[in-house]
Design a binder for these strands. Structure first.
Lengths: 204, 204
DNA sequence: CATTTACTAGCCGATCAGTCTATTATTCGG
DNA sequence: CCGAATAATAGACTGATCGGCTAGTAAATG
């Protein structure tokens, strides 16, 4: 039932798509994130992504220099998407700081459930397999964690100012601890295909 | 400088080593654990293990039916080794329950430092890449976590009985939470090649 | 119409997990 | 003590898949 999809590719430069655009590059990145959050970097072959998107190999290397460059862009894209999502919750003035955090957790939980707990966190996945990854990824991945922590810390500081947490709470430490534990919880939830670990950790 | 090592293999069954035994099967398993704690299952080729041990392919498939069967044994071996290590600390009568836990954490920290934070937890590694692993691993891996949690819970119960933690503490939940967070901390420590995450989480 | 841009088909050498045959040391039945 | 069976090794080999490359085709552009 190729309804609209399967655009019947031909040789050479494709005719300019007036609308209903099917940006090949974009599709590769989107599908790349999907598969890598499930299986990681090393275990994912380029051919698998290509097959899923319905694009030949040549196109991939037209848009990306290498698998490493592709992975790099995936990290950037995922980090940006996630930072935006964090802001959407953690900067929501209509709720108290702690409520915002709960909102984020609930949303992330829903997200995992929607994909039947088959997808984890891209940054966590790649972090775990760093031993087999291009060394350039390391700095980028830690940097992403630092960024997420900073956003979280800001929200905790607001919570402290609002008296929702003790006045002597070390918000930077708390934020760091949250992400350490959260990544652990996502890992377990994915392994067990069960949100129990997420819920358990959410009541930290 | 092949001092004693490099045993100069020849064809056919090797002469029985009176002593200074070099059990091939054992060597494969030991090296397998080493490499898999660094790079995981999918990213590790059998040839790589073979090269490191200095054993030809034929020997590998003489001892193991497949890569999957090999991986299965590695999980068992690692789980047993780790359970023994846990008991060594958590059942140490000469210290208080909470001191025992601190002892285990300190030991694990040392262990990671000794390998320059290049090796993580085999169970955590494989858990993360479950999406690309034989489905049979899933049950085994969760079972290992359950086992470790039980040992930890027993120690927490002792701590509660000794008055080291509040009498209304939910030890099962605490134990589950510990392993969730601990795996997250190990992941970060490995990614950043730095024990900061371990220390941070240790003061939970 | 010539050049540039956007793209694709098909192939490459390397490596993957796994198989096969050969070779030799040991074990064991008689 | 001998011969058959078996255990342990060696390493060439297979088909599939890996990441990556190249030559070329067709639309867009001037």
């Amino acid at each position: 039932m190729d309804t609209g999809i399967a655009p019947k590719r031909g040789r050479g430069r494709p005719p300019k798509q007036r609308n209903g655009f099917s940006d090949t590059r974009e599709a590769l990145l989107r599908t790349g994130v999907e598969i890598l959050t499930e299986k990681g970097f090393s275990a994912t072959g380029i051919d698998e992504i290509l097959r899923r998107v319905g694009v030949p190999k040549g196109s991939f290397y037209h848009y990306f220099d290498s698998k490493e460059a592709f992975g790099s862009e995936l990290i950037d894209r995922y980090a940006a998407y996630f930072a935006h999502k964090l802001d959407r919750f953690l900067l929501d003035d209509s709720r108290s700081p702690l409520e915002r955090i709960d909102g984020f957790i609930a949303n992330a939980r829903q997200g995992m459930a929607r994909h039947r707990y088959e997808r984890g966190c891209l940054v966590g996945n790649l972090g775990q397999e760093m031993g087999a990854l291009p060394e350039a990824f390391r700095a980028r991945l830690t940097q992403v964690f630092t960024d997420w922590q900073a956003r979280f810390e800001a929200c905790l500081l607001a919570a402290r100012a609002a008296g929702e947490i003790p006045a002597d709470a070390d918000c930077a430490r708390l934020a760091a601890c949250f992400w350490i534990g959260w990544e652990g919880a996502v890992l377990r939830a994915k392994l067990e295909r069960d949100p129990a670990a997420l819920d358990l950790f959410a009541d930290y």
